[in-house]
Design a protein around this nucleic acid. Structure first.
Length: 309
DNA sequence: GCACAGGTAGATT
DNA sequence: AATCTACCTGTG
């Protein structure tokens, strides 16, 4: 695995009021398939009483510590509390959002929510989320993390900090290559990052974006249906990837990605055996409503942890 | 050795 | 329009 970059972190621990996930739910949020750049520090247990996570997004490197008295964080000097709050979508009232899901008339959903209290949907940088999910086709989280780590390590610029400059030999985290940077990388170098056939998707998407400055930002700003249609113009982006990018990287909570776990969940718990992904997506949107993506995350987490196989 | 893994796209029916 | 299949490659 890659270097954690924890030695660059110079500021002290600060409390993060307003979110007190259990270590287990923290793990599910950071490392349950939404994001691919969080690692549990060696020596820290994944379970109570304490755990320590290091993560990167954009030019930020942050550590989160849970257990005992709530959540604490510290990060690179340039990382503000506002940066972290945006990433964690901390400005939304997640209790109220979850409460407005149709759990009163849906016993299984109620069960999933109870199993993962305070679960959140992250608000990651749009472009990085696209990159992560372009890597995701028929791969498990561990392998996606491996690909993304190699991309950052080999093709991303180091995340600078005062402490890193003072200690040049210490490990330093790297940011993910930006799309303009990706457009300059030969496909064979991308393949060398264990991407396989996904390398072509990334190379072609990078070329597409390089020819259209502002396209990604405009897409992020569009309403969900238009944004999804635009994303699906990109090579390697189908329904599922587009929905993941919009849910985890644009705050579009109506996006309802249907992957194999959600397919299993709806087949097993809702009797939708044999339904096609598109049919399941339609059911999900109508049954779960405007926050279907949040419901999806509860179902997904439950199925993966308790559903078996 | 071989199936399978958090899909997509192009061909075939 | 619905249903196959190839696409890379590490893992068990």
């Amino acid at each position: 695995m890659t270097r954690s970059g924890s030695s660059k972190i110079s500021s002290g621990w600060q409390p993060l009021a307003g979110w007190s996930p259990t270590p287990d739910v923290l793990r599910e949020t950071l490392d349950g398939g939404q994001a691919f750049r969080w690692t549990l520090e060696p020596g820290a247990a994944a379970t109570p009483p304490r755990c320590l996570w290091t993560g990167n997004w954009s030019t930020h490197c942050v550590q989160l510590r849970a257990g005992g008295s709530g959540l604490q964080w510290r990060g690179t000097p340039a990382t503000t509390s506002a940066d972290l709050c945006r990433y964690l979508a901390h400005d939304l009232d997640w209790t109220a959002l979850t409460n407005s899901l149709p759990w009163r008339s849906d016993a299984h959903l109620a069960h999933c929510i109870a199993a993962f209290p305070d679960l959140r949907i992250l608000r990651q940088p749009f472009g990085e989320t696209l990159l992560g999910f372009l890597c995701s086709a028929t791969k498990q989280i561990v392998q996606i993390k491996q690909m993304v780590a190699l991309l950052a390590e080999r093709h991303g610029s180091p995340i600078l900090s005062r402490s890193a400059l003072r200690a040049p030999h210490s490990a330093s985290a790297c940011r993910l290559p930006t799309w303009p940077e990706l457009a300059t990388i030969p496909e064979k170098d991308l393949r060398a990052c264990l991407l396989g056939f996904r390398a072509r998707y990334i190379a072609e998407t990078a070329k597409f974006l390089a020819a259209r400055p502002g396209w990604l930002d405009e897409t992020e700003a569009l309403p969900y249906p238009a944004a999804k249609a635009r994303l699906m113009e990109l090579p390697g982006v189908g329904e599922k990837v587009a929905d993941c990018v919009l849910l985890f990287g644009a705050g579009k909570l109506e996006a309802f990605p249907v992957d194999t776990w959600v397919l299993k969940s709806l087949a097993r718990r809702y009797g939708l055996d044999g339904w096609k992904p598109a049919q399941v997506a339609h059911f999900g949107r109508t049954h779960f409503g405007p926050l279907a993506g949040l419901a999806q995350q509860y179902l997904f987490s439950w199925e993966r942890k308790f559903g078996g196989r």
